[in-house]
């Protein structure tokens, strides 16, 4: 499906590249004579041919992974030019052109600098775009990125990402002699939501909750999903009393969330339990364990259902 989408969105660029590459072949064949097999320079063929194939692969990866737009156009047209240059270079290895021709040097070396300039402009704008995206990722990501640690369900980091960040933040807070607090939030009786409204609704609710919690955090906080319906917030430069205040605010936010189910639009009433711990000199694993034990103590006894 996605490959078809590439063809749909970029048919002009890809079509032009195909036509240009073919015209190059035809021009070479029209003016030159093919080289005999024993004249072929295998090292050059592999070097130049391999490079052009890699450039083609990069082009497809860029087109496949990026939404269409200005930056994508710069990157892809730049890569098209570079590919064309290498392609003309490879043809040399198979076809001998008369010495007096001038245009073949132009076709070989002309598109390369143009492609490099376009690619560089594209990369620069990509950098700007990434900065804008980083701002959107605020509170969900801190300095370090590893997509394999993303949570599969919510747009947050998972437990492994959290553990990585806890380690980093503890070292940082020791260095700067600033307090570091951790906050855990767990939805009370979340399994009832799954049982009453189905697991798909439970998943949707977790996604809604992650957005809600993000809205209630400060810029330098980091929200991750630990497991199931349990979220952990990393609070740098925050003492325990301030963390408690934040925990209370998050609890109130969850309570006043008026989530409506997708099927019948019923309101789901939720409450959350929270726990707060301050980091001491301990291993990150120990800290997380302490946080979770504190949360277990904070859980109210389950209310009997009507």
């Amino acid at each position: 499906m996605t490959w078809l989408n590439i063809l749909k969105h970029h048919r002009w660029k890809l079509g032009l590249l195909l036509v240009a590459a073919n015209i190059g072949v035809l021009l070479n064949l029209a003016f030159g004579t093919p080289k005999a097999f024993n004249e072929w320079q295998w090292l050059d063929i592999i070097g130049e041919g391999g490079t052009s194939l890699f450039v083609l692969l990069w082009l497809f990866l860029v087109l496949k992974s990026r939404p269409t737009g200005r930056v994508t156009n710069y990157l892809s047209i730049g890569l098209c030019c570079i590919f064309f240059s290498w392609w003309m270079d490879v043809l040399d290895e198979f076809i001998r052109l008369p010495k007096h021709l001038g245009w073949n040097h132009w076709l070989e070396s002309g598109p390369m600098p143009v492609g490099m300039v376009l690619l560089t402009i594209g990369l620069y704008h990509w950098h700007r775009e990434q900065q804008a995206i980083n701002q959107q990722m605020e509170k969900r990501e801190r300095t370090f990125r590893e997509h394999r640690l993303f949570d599969k369900l919510t747009p947050l980091g998972g437990a492994d990402y959290l553990k990585h960040q806890v380690g980093d933040c503890m070292a940082q807070s020791r260095e700067q002699e600033q307090p570091l607090s951790l906050l855990a939030l767990d939805i009370d009786d979340f399994s009832l939501v799954n049982q009453h409204y189905g697991h798909a609704e439970g998943d949707a609710l977790l996604q809604a909750l992650s957005q809600l919690l993000l809205l209630n955090l400060r810029r330098h906080d980091l929200l991750c999903r630990l497991a199931g319906d349990r979220f952990v917030v990393l609070l740098p430069n925050t003492g325990e009393s301030q963390a408690r205040l934040l925990a209370l605010e998050l609890q109130q936010a969850v309570q006043s969330l008026a989530h409506k189910t997708r099927q019948h639009g019923e309101r789901v009433c939720l409450s959350a339990s929270t726990a707060v711990v301050m980091a001491f000199d301990e291993a990150p694993d120990e800290l997380l364990k302490r946080l979770n034990l504190a949360l277990a103590r904070a859980k109210p006894p389950r209310s009997k259902r009507a």
Binding site: A159, A227, N292
Partner: peptide, 12 residues
């Protein structure tokens, strides 16, 4: 490695 899943689903 993923002990937190046990905490949440099977108890602390």
């Amino acid at each position: 490695r993923y002990v937190e899943q046990y905490w949440v689903h099977l108890g602390e």
